[in-house]
């Protein structure tokens, strides 16, 4: 069982090629994105099935997951 994670905006420059497919029910979103977060120097919010979740959330089969970076300029 696998889940696709969609990286948005800034994170697309640092993530694996799309589609990024990970096993369901194993690692939390925080664990999956730890390295990328460091590389991107940017935090993020996981949005699972349209709702914000914590980084501790473990993806489940059927989830629609998007990663919204937390960085801005102006």
């Amino acid at each position: 069982m696998a889940v696709t994670i969609r990286l948005l905006g800034l994170f697309r420059q640092y993530g694996p090629p799309e589609p990024w497919v990970v096993p369901a029910g194993e690692r939390s979103i925080g664990e999956l994105l730890a390295e990328m977060e460091e590389k991107a120097h940017a935090g993020y919010i996981p949005i699972v099935n349209g709702e914000r979740k914590s980084k501790a959330y473990v993806p489940e089969e059927g989830d629609e997951i998007k990663i919204m970076p937390l960085v801005t300029g102006g």
Partner: peptide, 20 residues
């Protein structure tokens, strides 16, 4: 907590990705 990385580099963080 969520803004920790933004705190580290502030708005200059987006110079490289926005040029990109």
């Amino acid at each position: 907590g969520q803004g920790e990385k933004f705190r580290a580099h502030g708005t200059p963080r987006v110079i490289v990705p926005l040029e990109g």
